[in-house]
């Protein structure tokens, strides 16, 4: 028991040391500063994917996370540009806005199951894109551009985060921001899944009728899980808008929604950290295949199919089975 606990603490410490110390050190040593952007993307995409994973955990195939990422991006951009809000305030507000929207959207659609829920969420991403094109406040196809970098964040006159525009290396700053949020996000997810809430979610996934008859309020638990999921999507989208200093209707599309889902499949639906690993592997895998040119998509899709046939429970099931043998 304590040994297990020590192992966990050691793994977490090692992980933190890698992402906060080793990776920045390696990047500045090698001069490959572009990797900051890549890894920041991975961290943010894994936050959005974590949300999708949570909806899987209550037994729903969610192909609509792109809609909330887009929504979060626009909410933050509009509040910064039109109302002069600080980015740091828009970040939680974007998340909460998406969570609130997902409650309204979820109330009717979370009754659906299986392929029906999946189809509706898929359409949701497209609806979000069309809305962004049509609404006056989102500025149509031209999108919102020249968003200023995040300003300083100070509490009681104490500057906690410096103004990104004054930094020499804003790429490092965004990397640290994204990774910090990723760590918090997965910490929350880990806690959710390993507390009774996780068991309640599993009970929904495995048998909603029975869950209901043992007194689980399935409707409200579904909504809560979906709201948390969408919160993550919105936060990720808001940071993306801040990094690229722009947001367009096509910033998040159906393809992104599908990728969020694939990240979860690849990493493993039974493992909290599945979406993180899945996002990392898919993101770099796709880039590595770039050299194969016109065959990129074909090889990529083929590999995905093979992987899912060979490892239906995701990459992390490999580690679990090795640990079991040892």
């Amino acid at each position: 028991m304590t040994r297990n606990r020590n192992m966990k603490i050691a793994s977490v410490a090692a992980f933190l040391a890698i992402v906060f110390i080793a990776v920045p050190a390696a990047i500045s040593g090698s001069g490959r500063f572009d990797l900051y952007y890549t890894l920041t993307s991975v961290a943010l995409l894994s936050i959005a994917s974590a949300g999708v994973w949570l909806t899987f955990y209550i037994g729903r195939i969610n192909i609509g996370q792109g809609a909330y990422a887009l929504m979060g991006g626009y909410v933050s951009a509009i509040l910064v540009m039109n109302y002069g809000w600080s980015f740091w305030l828009t970040l939680p507000v974007a998340g909460l806005f998406c969570a609130a929207a997902s409650v309204l959207i979820g109330l009717p659609i979370l009754r659906l199951r299986g392929v029906y829920f999946a189809m509706v969420t898929l359409v949701l991403t497209e609806v979000a894109r069309l809305l962004a094109l049509a609404l006056p406040i989102t500025n149509g196809a031209k999108g919102i551009v020249s968003i200023p970098l995040p300003g300083a964040l100070s509490v009681f006159g104490l500057t906690i985060i410096p103004d990104f525009a004054t930094l020499q290396n804003s790429r490092l700053a965004f990397y640290l921001l994204a990774v910090t949020l990723m760590v918090v996000c997965f910490g929350v997810m880990y806690r959710l899944v390993n507390s009774r809430i996780g068991k309640l979610c599993q009970s929904l996934q495995q048998n909603e009728e029975l869950a209901s008859s043992i007194g689980v309020n399935i409707a409200s638990l579904r909504i809560i899980a979906y709201a948390v999921s969408s919160f993550f999507g919105g936060v990720a989208g808001a940071i993306f808008a801040a990094i690229s200093q722009s947001i367009y209707p096509s910033s998040f599309t159906v393809t992104d929604s599908v990728n969020f889902m694939l990240n979860c499949f690849l990493g493993g639906l039974g493992y909290v950290f599945g979406p993180m690993l899945g996002t990392l592997v898919l993101y770099f895998g796709w880039d590595l295949l770039f050299q194969t040119g016109q065959f990129q998509l074909l090889i990529y899709s083929g590999l995905m199919i093979v992987l899912m046939l060979v490892l239906p429970n995701g990459l992390l099931s490999l580690a679990a089975s090795i640990r079991k043998k040892a």
């Binding site: 068991k199 599993q202 009970s203 495995q206 048998n207 009728e209 029975l210």
Partner: peptide, 8 residues
């Protein structure tokens, strides 16, 4: 239908 939580 002997309903249970199968995977727990």
């Amino acid at each position: 239908e002997t309903t249970i939580f199968k995977n727990m």
